[in-house]
Design a protein around this nucleic acid. Structure first.
Lengths: 227, 227
DNA sequence: GTCTATAGTCGGATAGAC
DNA sequence: GTCTATCCGACTATAGAC
């Protein structure tokens, strides 16, 4: 009883609705988005939302499950390789900072590739940022998935680089602020592009962000080392 | 023909509506917020929104003008003192980094005091972050006011500390990332509090954020200096 | 699984008395 | 300036034919 290789019509409808919902919810937010607009964008009948997802809210949650899954798939390699690399080095190793920076580079690269290459990524960011402001069940789906793991990996890296306990407030705050430098540009994209004089957030801009963030982290790690 | 010291009934209604609108728009977003809910929260009649602000959208814009005004009032001293201090030091002065850090400390303090002490601040942040995702006229009101000035002051400080041109991409990006470290916690408050194990974003937490951000900036500035 | 048609609800705006 | 009453459009959900 394998899954059918050729998706039947129902699966296609589901797919179309998920994709359209991602865009429309991302553009308009949950309340402003209408099921009619989503159905039109998907090219399917409005009543099918009720049939496939139970209703508007069911569709919304399904979109987040979809995002969390794709994020996991795209971020997992970087996070796992990082953890593996960290376990090979000793806390006294003099080049541990270089290793930590390589790990952060991997995580940033995974994150920014995900956001830069994926045509749906703008919608993802909008949805995630909306959820931050007043979280619903959808936030749990995300944080429990790739998001929390990424922060966990960053915390482990900071602990290794600085010698702090991974559970300490200082270590966790440092990790959060490292992520901040890359994510804030996404969160406050209008402010960021305006301030930088950019018209888009394309690969060039994302690379610039990554390089500057890495340089900052490098300085922070070296500043934390007592020579 | 001075303005009357004692506000008449109409002014009180305007005030009540603005305050209630800030909270309800902040909690629910523009579309999900209903004029009935706002009127109820303000304790006034729903039809008065049309009379005083022309309609729902007019009220929304008025809320942003109000926020921009209050932000300006609370941030202006820090920004102006910073600019003044910067003009007194030479680019070769060895302690210019200390001066720059003091300026950033002032700006951060102004920002965090505003957000920490003001009971409406949570609503402000929510509204501003929503606007970032798809900006309307309301964003212009904000960016043209205190927000842009704050970024301008930070850019000038970074230019002084690093010797970069204030117009350069590198300098502007560094300034943006300095602001990021404080603002991201507000923007992604749910992620931040969850990751840190906090239950609120009170004065204690804000102070911790400020200190860590200043330490990071200190490291970054020193990393930028070619000894 | 898909469609049409519609029931039922809610929200923004406004006319008009006071 | 404030209030009541109401209009009218837009929306979600669902019943029921195919």
């Amino acid at each position: 009883m394998n899954k059918p290789r050729i998706p039947n019509r129902g699966d296609q409808t589901r797919e179309s609705l998920l994709r359209a919902a991602l865009n429309v919810f991302g553009r308009d937010g949950f309340h402003a988005a209408s099921t009619r607009a989503i159905a039109d964008a998907a090219g399917v009948n409005q009543a099918l939302i009720g049939y496939h997802f139970g209703g508007k809210e069911g569709l919304y949650l399904a979109v987040f499950e979809d995002i969390a899954e794709r994020m996991s798939a795209q971020m997992a390699p970087a996070a796992e390789t990082s953890i593996a690399e960290l376990s090979t080095i000793s806390p006294e190793s003099p080049d541990r900072i270089d290793t930590c920076l390589r790990c952060i580079d991997m995580i940033f690269s995974g994150l920014l590739e995900m956001l830069g290459q994926n045509p749906d990524a703008t919608g993802w960011v909008r949805l995630v940022m909306r959820e931050q402001q007043d979280p619903t069940k959808a936030f749990e789906i995300l944080y429990g998935g790739a998001y929390g793991k990424m922060l966990g990996a960053l915390t482990a890296i900071v602990a290794t680089a600085t010698g702090l306990q991974a559970e300490s407030q200082e270590c966790r705050l440092k990790a959060l602020m490292i992520l901040s430098q890359v994510m804030f540009v996404m969160a406050a994209r209008t402010t960021a592009t305006r301030h930088m004089g950019w018209v888009t957030l394309g690969p060039t801009e994302l690379e610039m962000i990554k390089q500057q963030a890495l340089a900052n982290v490098y300085a922070q790690f070296n500043g934390d080392v007592k020579p």
